[in-house]
C-alpha cells in the first residue's frame, strides 16, 4: 500500500505513521496479499462470535463514497467498519449535492474537512480513486471499484475463499497464502470487468494458472502482458479446472452490439446444469455478484453445494475488516 508523500500530518493525525492506500492489487504483491489473508483469519473468528465486534478502530471514521450503485461492496465495507468499532458515514451520489453540480474535488474536500480517516471510493470512471488519493491530505483511500479498471478487495476475498476452501485438497500444493498449481478459469464479460483485472493480478501473483474464456468481443482489445491463457471453448476447459469464476454480463456498460443475443451467449458461455457436470467433483463455482440467473449461470447451478457465492460474500466482510484494520489501525506497511 502506497505511502503518501505530501505535507506532514497535523492535528489529531500528528505523530501517526504515514497514511497508506489500497488502490490496486499490484500495490500489494504476493507478500502483501498473503498478509491480508493471514489477518483475515482472525477477523473470520471475530465474525463467528456471538458479539462480532472488536474495539480496534474506535474513534476512526470511515466514509463510503459511492458514485455508482452497489449492494454487497457498500454493505460489506460498512459492516466491516462497524465491527471494528469505527464510525461510518454514508455518501450516495443520488441524494447529494452532486445533483446541484458540486464537483468531485469539492465533494471530496468537503468530506475530508469533517475529519475522516478512511474513504472507500466507487466510481464509474477508471482511475478516480487515484485522483481522490491525490486530493486528500490525510485520509486513506480504498478502491471499492473504479470503472472497468480494478476492484482489489473483491480479488482479495476471492483469493481468501479459494485458498481456504481448497485447503487440504490435492490441487492445493502451496501454503495458506498460495494458489500454486490451482487452475482457474474466468468466464464471461472480461472486457468490462474490473473484477477480472484485479483477480488476474491477484491469482497469478499467488501462482495460479489462469485461463480467460470469453467470446472475442468480450475480451479486452489487447491482452499483451497478461499472465493468462485465452480460450473460446468453455466445454474443453471445464474438466481441467479447480475453480470456475463466472462474471456478470455488464449490459449497462455495453455501448455497441457485442453479442448476437443473450440466449446465444448462454448457449455458448453460460454455466448450464449440463455444462456444470463437466466440472471435476470438487471444483468450486464462483461469481462476484450480482448474478444474472439464467444468463451466465443457471439458477440451479448457482444454488448447488459446490457454488461458494454466498461464502464469498461472508468472507468479504472479514477481508474488508482486515484491509481497514491494516490501513487505519495496524501501522504496518504492506507495500510490496
Amino acid at each position: 500500500m502506497k505511502a503518501a508523500t505530501d505535507l506532514p500530518p497535523v492535528g489529531r493525525h500528528a505523530g501517526q505513521p504515514a497514511r497508506r492506500h489500497l488502490l490496486s492489487v499490484a500495490d500489494l504483491g504476493a507478500d502483501g496479499i498473503e498478509e491480508v489473508l493471514r489477518v483475515t483469519d482472525s477477523f473470520v473468528e471475530v465474525s463467528g462470535r456471538a458479539i462480532p465486534k472488536v474495539p480496534a478502530l474506535r474513534g476512526k471514521t470511515v466514509v463510503s463514497l459511492f458514485f455508482e450503485d452497489s449492494t454487497r461492496t457498500r454493505l460489506s465495507f460498512e459492516t466491516a467498519a462497524r465491527r471494528l468499532s469505527a464510525d461510518v458515514m454514508t455518501f450516495s451520489a443520488a441524494s447529494s449535492s452532486v445533483n446541484k453540480g458540486e464537483s468531485l474535488r469539492d465533494t471530496v474536500e468537503t468530506i475530508e474537512a469533517m475529519g475522516i480517516d478512511g474513504v472507500v471510493v466507487r466510481h464509474a470512471g477508471s482511475g478516480v480513486p487515484w485522483q481522490v488519493a491525490r486530493w486528500l491530505r490525510q485520509a486513506a483511500v480504498i478502491n471499492g471499484g473504479d470503472g472497468w479498471h480494478e476492484h482489489p478487495t473483491q480479488a482479495l476475498l476471492d483469493c481468501y475463499t479459494i485458498t481456504r476452501m481448497l485447503a487440504g485438497a490435492p490441487a492445493h500444493e502451496g501454503g495458506p497464502g498460495s494458489l500454486a498449481g490451482v487452475r482457474i478459469a474466468i468466464v464471461g464479460d472480461i472486457r468490462h470487468s474490473r473484477v477480472a483485472r484485479s483477480d488476474v493480478l491477484a491469482f497469478s501473483a499467488l501462482g495460479a494458472h489462469v485461463t480467460l474464456v470469453a467470446p472475442p468481443t468480450l475480451l479486452p482489445p489487447s491482452l499483451a502482458g497478461w499472465p493468462v491463457e485465452v480460450s473460446h471453448d468453455l466445454d474443453a476447459v471445464l474438466p481441467t479446472l479447480d475453480v470456475v469464476y463466472l462474471l456478470r454480463l455488464q449490459q449497462e456498460r455495453m455501448r455497441e452490439a457485442l453479442l448476437p443475443s443473450l440466449r446465444e451467449y448462454t448457449a455458448t458461455y453460460g454455466l448450464t446444469s449440463t455444462r456444470a457436470r463437466l466440472l471435476p467433483d470438487d471444483a468450486l463455482i464462483m461469481h462476484p455478484g450480482p448474478v444474472n440467473r439464467g444468463v451466465e449461470i443457471a439458477a440451479e447451478v448457482a444454488d448447488q453445494p459446490s457454488s461458494v457465492i454466498t461464502r464469498q460474500v461472508a468472507n468479504g466482510v472479514a477481508v474488508r475488516m482486515a484491509v481497514l484494520y491494516l490501513l487505519l489501525g495496524s501501522g504496518v506497511d504492506l507495500a510490496a
Binding site: 482472525s42 474495539p55 495496524s330
Partner: peptide, 16 residues
C-alpha cells in the same frame, strides 16, 4: 484488536 496502543506502534494479530 483490544490493545490500547493501536496506531502508536505496529500491531498485528499472530493467529486467530
Amino acid at each position: 484488536f483490544y490493545r490500547d496502543d493501536i496506531g502508536l506502534r505496529p500491531v498485528l494479530p499472530e493467529a486467530a
